[in-house]
Amino acid sequence: MLVLEKNALSEEIENLVGEFGKDRSALLQILQAIQGKHKYISDFAQQEVARMMDIHPVEVNSIVSFYAFLYSEPKGRYIVRLCQTISCDMSGKEEVAEAVQRELGISFGQTTKDKRITLEFTNCLGMCDQGPAMLVNEKVYTKLDPETAVNILSEIK
């Protein structure tokens, strides 16, 4: 990471700490904000958060690794999470999964080379009555079939 980038990131985190507070209870909000903007929380960012909140870097790392929606590895601009829980599974999640994998040329857990899309499975999205469902970043799509799913993904370039 370039020094300039590091400085910018530090400043950004400083602002977040200013906004949400230095108390430990603000930690998740700060991490969510970094995750939202950068799509991951780099090791440098984790250490900066730790430094500014006066906690240990490994504690930040521990939190990031605990929550499924926080990452310490770079992800695509769009994180696509396909629900794998039973109702969606029964309503055709497998076919949707296969179609999007074929279309993007990556498997679940991977990111496209152009860093556009990351494919992931997720647990119940609370859309069991309208499965299969998926999240594209925070947006939810339901009643998918292979065709609609692929169309959605091609539109988010």
Binding site: I86, C128, D129
Partner: peptide, 11 residues
């Protein structure tokens, strides 16, 4: 934090 599979009433 409605996460129980098959629950979506809170939604």
């Amino acid at each position: 934090d409605e996460g129980e599979p098959g629950t979506f009433k809170d939604r």
